[in-house]
């Protein structure tokens, strides 16, 4: 009997663990107005997306910033050389970097990564293709 109760407790704990207690639930997608805000970003081109999403942490000049922790500079960043890395970062997130795969279309991801790779002292001119983004989305 004792063992049964432990098992029940652990199962319940796991079930509870699935319920995140975040402030606001995301609204279902709607073709009409949304009081809770659309999880999709309005901006479509790379520059607008950078200015309205990435700049929140990496700063408008892409120089990053620091406090108790730090936001890496995207300016002159060697890690952007292979496009798969920034594509994966934007789609899936890592560490403090949130995942934006659910909030951006493949075209938006391609546009914003291409923009960052060709600005702020980065000159990786091979544009990110939709196929590349699609592949990352599918392998997630």
């Amino acid at each position: 009997m004792k063992i049964k109760i432990i098992a029940a407790g652990v199962t319940l704990l796991t079930a509870l663990a699935a319920l995140a207690g975040d402030e606001a639930p995301l609204p279902p997608p709607s073709k009409h107005a949304s009081l809770l805000g659309s999880p999709r970003f309005a901006a479509q081109d790379g520059e607008s997306l950078f200015k309205s999403v990435c700049a929140a942490c990496h700063m408008p000049n892409a120089m990053g910033g620091s406090g108790a922790g730090f936001y890496p500079a995207l300016a002159k960043n060697d890690k952007l050389a292979v496009s798969a890395y920034p594509v994966m970062m934007v789609m899936n997130g890592k560490g403090g970097m949130p995942a934006f795969g659910e909030d951006m279309t493949d075209a938006q991801v391609a546009a914003v990564v291409t923009y960052v790779r060709t600005h702020f002292g980065n000159s990786y001119t091979d544009a990110v293709s939709l196929d590349e983004v699609k592949q990352v989305r599918e392998t997630k």
Partner: peptide, 9 residues
Amino acid sequence: GNAAFELAS
């Protein structure tokens, strides 16, 4: 949430 990034930036 992510919708706040447009203001956060």
